[in-house]
Structure formats: structure tokens, C-alpha cells
Design a protein around this nucleic acid. Structure first.
Ligand SMILES: [Mn+2]
Ligand SMILES: [Mn+2]
Ligand SMILES: [Zn+2]
Ligand SMILES: [Zn+2]
Lengths: 138, 138
DNA sequence: ACAATAAATGCACTTCCGTTGCACTAAGAA
DNA sequence: TTCTTAGTGCAACGGAAGTGCATTTATTGT
């Protein structure tokens, strides 16, 4: 049994061929991926299957969904210490306006914000837009 | 000439009847509004007109668009000191999971974030999700 | 190995929101 | 008034998310 299969089973997700391929695809990329990206990478697979795979992965804490403001949902594998299901230690995301790629900045946590009286924070999303290190050429 | 008409002309937007109505509608609300909200408020008007009005307002710096993570674009009037077109002094937004309302927290600016080497920040979006003061009951 | 059961996949279709093209109308300039 | 531009209304398109149901594949129990 491979590493990926073990990882999936640890999260109580049955390691089907499709799921292993999708996991591997996401693991090889260092950027967040959209459903369409996976669809293009695996032309033979049906969009619904990929869609539901991502949904399952998200529910089981294997990936987290990213709203980078483009209107297209992105997904990235959760790091070992990723507490995204607990809504704590939330990291920020960076979207490059040049290459349209979105990356997790897992080391950069969202700073704590003091809200006005009566407001209760449960979750947060911080997206920085600009030029990524690949595109800025340094 | 009313205050609203003056405001629109100052921003080089011709104060048509429809535009004045939309501006007034947004000014009376203390929450961000979606295109659908305006559509429901002015059943006689066409969605396209409202859509293009909001677009014009945004281009002229009268309103700013808000991405609160719901997937539906919201809009709010820019405060007198709102520098949203300059991408500075960006304030954060709060979305209530209970009443589904989104508000501008204009006093709360997005803190400066130190990015990794090579990353250039140009814009930022910070949305806090939780329970608003109306719904938390205090 | 077999049947019974449950999970995963594939296809078709729907919904929602944003967006655009084009014709028509109202408003401002000459 | 005539010319020209800006605003509005109607219809249709588009992308992306989501759902219902039939079919296939895997797992369980005998
Ligand atoms: Mn991330
Ligand atoms: Mn705002
Ligand atoms: Zn880039
Ligand atoms: Zn609320």
C-alpha cells in the first residue's frame, strides 16, 4: 500500500484509483487547483466525480477550499498541522493577478482582529492580491 | 438640486432618476446590498440597468464592490474618506452566518502583512465570518 | 464462489448569477 | 429642430456549482 493510500485511509476515505490520482495531482502542484484544472488534467474522468471527490476530501479534512476572490473555488491539500476545520491558525492566501495562480502561505497566519461590541468571529478569510515571486522575477 | 444629485455630479455621474433612487436606497441601508436586493426593491426596473448602474458607481468611486465569500457580489457606498480605488486604508468586512448580512467595518483597517521575498501586494480582502451584533442579541 | 448490500462513478439536466449584444428611448449639444 | 451621445430595456449567453438517477464497482455476509 502506498503512502497516498495510507493517508486516505487514515482520513477514512476509500482509496479508489480516481481519488489516488487526484491526490497525487494536487500533491505535485505547489499551487491551489480549481475543479477545471483537474478536469483538464484527467480528461477521461467526469466532472461530477471530480467535484464530489473534492467535496469528500474537504469534509474529511484532506483538502481545504480557498476563496481567492476570482469567483472560482480552489483547493489545496492540508498541511500536517492544518487546523482549517477548527477555524483556528487560519493562514492567508495569495492570488497573483499576472499568472492567476493562488498559493497557500501556510506560515502566515491571519492576525487576530478586534471586532466591535456584539460581533462574534467564527471564521476568517484573508486574500492578498498582487504579483507572486515567480512573476515578479526575483 | 438635492444632495444626492450633487454627490453624483461631483463624481461625474449624470444624476438620472434611476441612479438617484439606487443611491438613496443604498444610503438608507447600513448593510451591503446585492444586485438582487436592488432588483427586488425596484421591481419595475430592469436588472441590466441596475447592474450597469452599480458598475458605473464603482468605476466612479461612489460604491465599492464587496466579496464576502458567499459568491454573491455586494456593494456599499464609499465613505467620505474611502480610498478603495487607491488600494490603501482597506477596511474589513463582516458577514453574519445567521442573517446573511454583510457590513463594512470602515474603522477596522486590514493590518499590514509581511509577505515572503518576491511577493508584491497590491490589494487585499479580509472577511470575518460569524454572528453580527444584531443577531448575537447584545 | 455466490448473492446481497453499499459506495463510487457517469450522464443529463438544472439553477444561479454575472455578463453581453442590440434595439430603443431620453437627454444634452450644435 | 437636428445631430449626437448616454441611458435603458429585452433577450440571450456563459461559466461554474449543484442534483437526480441509472450504472458500475467494491465490500460484506453466507
Ligand atoms: Mn491554504
Ligand atoms: Mn466596505
Ligand atoms: Zn504569478
Ligand atoms: Zn446577523
Amino acid at each position: 500500500m502506498t503512502e497516498i493510500e495510507k493517508t486516505l485511509e487514515n482520513k477514512s476515505v476509500r482509496p479508489t484509483a480516481m481519488r489516488i490520482l487526484i491526490y497525487k495531482y494536487m500533491a505535485e502542484k505547489d499551487i491551489a487547483v480549481a475543479l477545471t484544472d483537474i478536469e483538464n488534467a484527467f480528461a477521461k474522468a467526469d466532472r461530477t466525480t471530480l467535484y464530489r471527490t473534492l467535496k469528500t476530501f474537504e469534509e474529511k479534512g484532506i483538502v481545504h477550499q480557498i476563496d481567492d476572490g476570482t469567483g472560482i473555488s480552489k483547493y489545496a491539500l492540508c498541511e500536517p498541522g492544518c487546523n482549517c476545520e477548527l477555524d483556528q491558525d487560519l493562514h492567508l492566501h495569495f492570488h497573483c493577478g499576472n499568472c492567476d495562480e493562488t498559493v497557500c502561505l501556510t506560515e502566515h497566519k491571519i492576525p487576530h482582529i478586534n471586532l466591535p461590541e456584539g460581533y462574534i468571529a467564527e471564521d476568517a478569510n484573508l486574500v492578498i492580491k498582487g504579483i507572486c515571486e515567480k512573476c515578479s522575477g526575483q
